[in-house]
Amino acid sequence: MAKTTKTMRAADAALDAAAAAAKDAKRLAKTLPKRDAKKLRTLAEDAKEASTASRKSVERSPKKVVKKAVAAIARVEKATDKAEARLAAAATKTAEAERKRAAKEADKAAAAKKKAAEKKASKKTSSKKTSVATPEKKVAERKPAAATTTEPAPDPTAAPADPAAPAVDLAVLTVAQLRGRARAAGITGYSRLTKAQLLARLSS
């Protein structure tokens, strides 16, 4: 009798686990592309069905109930792992593209700043040459020190420091992208976190 009771408790635990797996899978499916979401929802329904075994079934064939529930859970977990791996890969790809875009914009801004500095220096040099070529030659000869006090034009070849690349705003990312980042950061249980919780964990 004790053995049967223990087996029945194991069956009840398996049914609870299957129900939880189905719930988590449905939640995750909302963040996935249509194809992956459809497959995961189907497996979630199977797990939910396995978790609704009748009490009579648990009493008569607890081992069979456990086997069915465990198999359903395994299928859901396998599909979930694959979907999360694809999400992580997509998030990494997006982050890399964002980094390259930011670097490109920084280079473009630096080039524009350098060009503006060169143009300004060229105008100053041209203005200086024009003032030296004026008819007041005697004044320039009597006061040579005045020419030496003119501040030198800035070096047109000096390149300004590159501006820092803009940081990625986590708030604009989707839940799927945030979960991908959480996975890459080694955060556990991220598939059950909300967007606000993910932002808090990633920002800490």
Rank of each mutant, 00 (worst) to 15 (best):
K137T: 09
A90H: 10
D12R: 12
A88K: 15
D107P: 01
A18V: 02
A102G: 06
E118Q: 13
A53G: 09
K30I: 07
K115F: 03
K129M: 03
A53R: 13
K124P: 00
I187R: 12
E59A: 11
A19T: 07
K63Q: 04
K143F: 08
S54V: 09
A74H: 12
A133Y: 09
P154N: 05
K195M: 06
V58N: 05
E84F: 12
T5F: 15
A18T: 00
K63A: 04
T125K: 10
R75N: 02
E59F: 07
A90P: 04
G186N: 01
A14N: 00
L28Y: 13
D107R: 14
A159V: 15
A103Y: 07
G180R: 12
A158Y: 10
M8C: 10
K64I: 08
V168C: 05
R35P: 11
D46T: 11
E59S: 10
K39D: 06
T42W: 13
A74P: 07
V172M: 14
K93R: 13
S204G: 11
V168L: 14
A121E: 03
T134M: 02
K38W: 03
A102P: 01
S127N: 02
A11M: 00
T149Y: 06
R41D: 09
K119H: 02
K114T: 00
P163R: 13
A10N: 07
K100I: 11
A18N: 01
A117I: 04
L87G: 12
K108P: 00
K68G: 01
A79I: 08
A88E: 14
A19N: 04
S57Q: 11
A164H: 10
P156S: 02
V70F: 06
E84L: 15
K68H: 03
K34W: 11
A91H: 02
A200N: 09
A29L: 13
A159G: 04
A29F: 14
L178P: 03
A158Q: 07
K68M: 02
S127Y: 02
P62N: 05
V58D: 00
K124R: 08
K120W: 00
P163Q: 14
E96A: 15
K3Y: 08
A21L: 02
S122R: 14
D12N: 08
D46K: 12
K137D: 01
A196E: 08
L43D: 00
A17M: 07
R201L: 07
A147C: 01
R55E: 12
P156K: 05
P135H: 03
S131Y: 06
P154I: 08
A53M: 11
K68A: 08
E84N: 13
L43G: 05
A74W: 06
A140E: 06
A196C: 04
A10W: 03
Q197V: 08
A19M: 03
R192P: 04
E49D: 13
T188W: 11
G189H: 04
T149A: 06
